[in-house]
Computed example of a mutant assay.
Amino acid sequence: MGMFNPISWTGSIASKDELNIDIEDIMISDGPTGHVMKLSPKLKEQLHKSWSNALILKNMGRSHALNFMLTKLNHKWNLIGQWQLTDLREGYFVARFQLKKDLIMCLLEVPGS
């Protein structure tokens, strides 16, 4: 069963050391309401990659703490890889999966089953 273990999972958000940023990848200009920052397609792809196996969850019932949700989802989902759960507050969570097949399984699971 997949476990929540952010320490041993290196597939988390890319750090600045892992990104390959050139001076041309970020352009800052003045816009009508302030500064505008445009990113190159190459940099956007690098930033998006770390979120490709993420799922935003909304708790539609009572508000629950992170540890409760983690235990509940870990029991409900029979995951193969590791995963991370982040509390965004107001009943929203982000689940990030190490494996695409775990994300797909969670998306295809019938709610309430």
Rank of each mutant, 00 (worst) to 15 (best):
G2C: 01
G2D: 01
F4W: 04
P6L: 08
I7N: 14
I7L: 12
S8N: 08
T10H: 08
G11Q: 07
S12P: 01
S12C: 02
I13N: 05
A14H: 12
S15G: 14
S15K: 04
S15R: 03
D17V: 11
D17Q: 07
I21H: 01
I23R: 08
E24V: 06
E24M: 03
D25A: 02
D25T: 01
D25Y: 00
I28H: 00
I28R: 10
I28E: 15
S29F: 02
S29N: 06
D30H: 04
D30M: 07
G31C: 09
P32Y: 03
P32W: 04
T33L: 12
T33P: 01
G34W: 00
G34V: 04
V36S: 10
K38R: 12
L39I: 07
S40W: 04
P41N: 14
L43G: 02
L43I: 05
K44H: 03
E45Y: 03
Q46A: 02
Q46S: 02
K49P: 00
S50E: 15
S52M: 11
N53D: 12
N53M: 04
A54R: 03
L55M: 15
I56W: 00
I56A: 14
K58H: 13
N59C: 15
M60C: 10
M60N: 14
S63V: 13
H64G: 06
H64N: 11
H64C: 15
A65T: 13
A65R: 13
L66H: 13
L66I: 09
F68C: 09
F68I: 14
T71G: 06
K72G: 06
K72A: 15
L73H: 05
N74G: 14
N74W: 05
K76S: 11
K76V: 06
K76E: 14
W77K: 02
W77D: 01
N78C: 07
N78L: 05
N78T: 03
L79G: 04
L79S: 11
G81E: 02
G81P: 03
G81Y: 06
Q82R: 10
Q82C: 08
Q84E: 12
Q84T: 09
Q84I: 01
L85C: 06
L85A: 04
T86F: 04
R89G: 15
E90F: 00
G91T: 08
G91V: 08
Y92S: 08
Y92C: 10
Y92K: 10
F93G: 03
A95M: 11
A95G: 05
A95L: 05
A95Y: 01
A95Q: 02
R96E: 09
R96I: 11
F97Y: 15
Q98M: 10
L99R: 06
K101A: 12
K101E: 12
D102P: 02
D102R: 04
L103Q: 02
L103G: 00
I104M: 08
I104T: 09
L107E: 10
L108Y: 04
E109R: 15
E109N: 09
V110W: 09
P111H: 03
P111W: 10
P111L: 05
G112Q: 09
S113M: 09
